[in-house]
Design a protein around this nucleic acid. Structure first.
Length: 339
DNA sequence: AAGCGCGGCAACCGCAACTAC
DNA sequence: TGTAGTTGCGGTTGCCGCGCT
């Protein structure tokens, strides 16, 4: 690598590469303060640096410029980056021009190391800013009629329990809430309103605390509403019940509060945009051809692998139980609350 | 204490766009 | 109009520090 002491020199041109020393920085700053930076090749010469002009420019613009703001990104900056990236894509310099004191390189790094992962964990494809369809969750959801899926999620929210010690069941609950959020997103987003992101997961820190607290579960298992889901029904702990109901209201209320996206509207009109494949730029355009009443979501065969011959709850059951999805759901429960 | 793996970030590379002649 | 030089941009690399075992 160029950074090591032995490889910091371009053997063919005698040009130094790699990390800058404080002395080099000082030379460059002094030179630019004195002469400005019209021609970077000249700057390098005048400063007495054995660096190419390009390297000098990079060092100045990304590190030495006096107006550079360093440190962690604020919430506002983060939001701006998300919004601009949804609109512009990887136009880092353009995004940087909207964030005073931030460089394109800094924003790019921040995106690649933090924001991309953050969106990914929220079930959003970082490239398209649309719900991800590259996983089992979305593939399975695509084959479930929206009204049945909505009913299923609502029913699960009402009928399921929140055991406090069993992490497996905690994951089960996370699945339900996650599905709810996906549905919520699908019903409130559209291709032109790029600022819209999924509402923060219902699985907030307060709920998480309850899920993982050491209190004894109120218990106990009875028949699940959904045979294939294997979700045990237990009696609510009063505190948990309150939160669960609140969570459920958060989900359903937002739908019913807005007549345009009301439950009836959802069920009758299927105002759910067609799912899009992950990471394909052309998928920015949301297909607005919706389903006919009671019909399955029709997805191109090359997009979704699951057959639609199974029942709603078979598919949902598979989704909930499939071993392959364990890692995904573990991530949801482990990391979503840190968003 | 040492080894290992991983994430963050500075810096480089290659290509495209721009400018001057 | 063609060419060479310069600048800007986005993708990629690899060092470094930190946490874990």
């Amino acid at each position: 690598m160029e950074g090591s002491s032995t490889s910091s020199w371009d053997e063919t041109n005698g040009i130094k590469k790699g990390p800058w020393t404080p002395e080099e920085d000082q030379k460059l700053v002094n030179c630019i303060q004195k002469y400005g930076h019209g021609n970077w090749k000249e700057v390098s010469k005048l400063a007495g640096l054995n660096r190419c002009g390009k390297s000098c420019r990079l060092r100045w613009t990304n590190y030495l410029r006096p107006d550079i703001k360093r440190g962690t990104f604020s919430e506002e900056e983060e939001q701006t980056i998300l919004e601009l990236h949804a609109l512009l894509g990887n136009k880092w310099s353009t995004i940087a021009s909207r964030l005073p004191g931030r460089t394109d390189n800094e924003i790019k790094n921040f995106w690649n190391t933090h924001l991309k992962k953050k969106l990914f964990r929220r079930g959003i494809d970082p490239t398209t800013h649309m719900p991800r369809t590259d996983n089992l969750v979305m593939n399975s959801l695509a084959n479930i009629p929206p009204d049945q899926l909505l009913a299923a999620v609502n029913s699960i929210c009402i009928n399921s329990a929140l055991p406090c010690q069993d992490s497996t069941t905690a994951i089960e609950f996370a699945k339900m809430l996650y599905l709810g959020n996906i549905l919520q997103f699908l019903n409130t987003s559209n291709s032109t309103h790029f600022e819209q992101y999924p509402a923060p997961l219902i699985l907030d820190s307060q709920l998480e605390a309850l899920l993982y607290s050491n209190s004894t579960p109120y218990t106990s298992a009875s028949t699940s509403t959904f045979p294939n889901l294997n979700v045990s029904q237990t009696i609510f702990h009063p505190e948990v019940e309150e939160l669960s109901i609140k969570s459920n209201r958060t989900f359903t209320q937002q739908i019913s509060d807005n007549s345009e996206y009301g439950t009836s509207s959802l069920c009758n009109n299927y105002s759910i945009p067609e799912l899009v494949p992950a990471s394909s730029p052309e998928s920015f355009t949301v297909n607005t051809e919706y389903q006919t009443t009671k019909g399955n979501i029709i997805s191109p065969k090359d997009q979704f692998s699951n057959s639609s011959t199974s029942t709603t709850f078979d598919v949902l059951g598979d989704l909930m139980d499939d071993e392959a999805s364990k890692y995904f759901w573990k991530q949801v429960t482990d990391q979503d609350t840190s968003l």
